Simulated assay, not measured.
Amino acid sequence: MSAIRVDSTKPYFATSSLVIGYALCSSLLAVTNKFAITKFNYLGLLTALQYLTSALGVWGLGKSGFLHHDIDPFTWQMAETCLPAALVFYLAIFINTNLLRHANVDTFVVFRSCTPLLVALEDIAFRKQPISSKLTFVSLLIILGGAVGYVATDSSFSSTAYSWAFAYLVTIATKMVYIEHMVTNVGSNAWGFVLYNSLLLQMMALQFSANLQS
């Protein structure tokens, strides 16, 4: 009887593919958002359109069978459960947009590269996650050192831009830890949470846009 061979490379390939895909999406999103806010000055409406696109994309892919989300039917009880996460997410996106408005993409990327260290520390402190290996923390500290070097030598230093940058660093790290906590404990699958979150964010963005114009 021949032994069944298990391909141990599949988990690594899947993880690598997700990491590369996330890196590409994140970098393209930063550049696209920077371009969008320089050409379209209605930030509330811009973010509302982004959230609408996200919600429609997940809903449409769910209807076509490419993914599964458990949002059908929509319930206000689940919406209320997701509301705190949506508020944190909205604050992070609001600060992110203002950072891109006042700083260049390089500054944005440098500060975003520091978020893994903060997320790791918050995971240990608040979610009681195991401490990462020493080599991992050394790598994160090296990234932090590069960011400090960038700030120290930035010829286009602006107190306004860096105020938004530090605010972004804190909120994005908090958002990542809290969203991970919500996805784990909300009682909905990941795509269902994305759809709820996008719908709530769209409502907030439209309200914010309406308040600015009133």
Rank of each mutant, 00 (worst) to 15 (best):
C114F: 05
F94I: 05
L87K: 04
P84G: 00
W191R: 07
Q213T: 09
A55Y: 06
F40C: 00
S159G: 07
T75W: 02
F157M: 09
G145A: 05
L199W: 02
C25R: 05
L91T: 11
I143D: 09
N96K: 13
F137V: 09
A120Y: 02
G60Q: 12
P84S: 01
T184H: 12
L52W: 10
F13N: 10
T153E: 11
W76I: 11
T160A: 06
V109T: 15
F193E: 05
A167E: 07
D7C: 07
T115K: 11
T136N: 08
T107H: 12
A205S: 11
V6F: 13
K34R: 06
F111A: 13
Q202M: 11
T97C: 06
V6P: 10
A92V: 02
A48L: 10
I71Y: 15
I93L: 09
L56A: 15
T75V: 03
P116A: 04
F40S: 01
V177Q: 01
S214K: 13
T136H: 09
N189S: 06
R112V: 13
S2M: 13
I93M: 14
A79V: 11
H102M: 06
L49Q: 13
Q213G: 01
I131A: 10
A3C: 03
S54W: 07
L200G: 01
I172M: 13
V31C: 02
P11Y: 01
W76E: 12
V110C: 14
I179L: 04
L49C: 02
W76M: 14
R127H: 00
I142E: 12
N104P: 03
I142H: 05
R5W: 13
V109Q: 14
S163Y: 01
Y196V: 02
S209H: 00
S133D: 12
V148W: 01
E180M: 03
T53C: 11
D72K: 05
H181Y: 13
N197E: 08
A30K: 08
K34F: 04
F35W: 11
A79M: 04
H68Y: 12
S132N: 11
A103C: 03
L212S: 03
V119T: 07
Y150N: 14
F40R: 01
Q50F: 14
L141C: 13
T47E: 05
N197G: 08
A147I: 05
G21T: 00
A85F: 04
A165P: 10
G146T: 11
Q202W: 10
F13E: 10
S155I: 08
V138Y: 11
Q213H: 07
W191S: 10
F111S: 12
L28H: 00
Q129R: 13
H68I: 15
G187P: 01
P73W: 06
S209Q: 05
F126Y: 06
A103V: 07
S27E: 01
W191P: 06
L52F: 12
A125N: 03
I37D: 07
L67T: 08
E122L: 15
N211K: 14
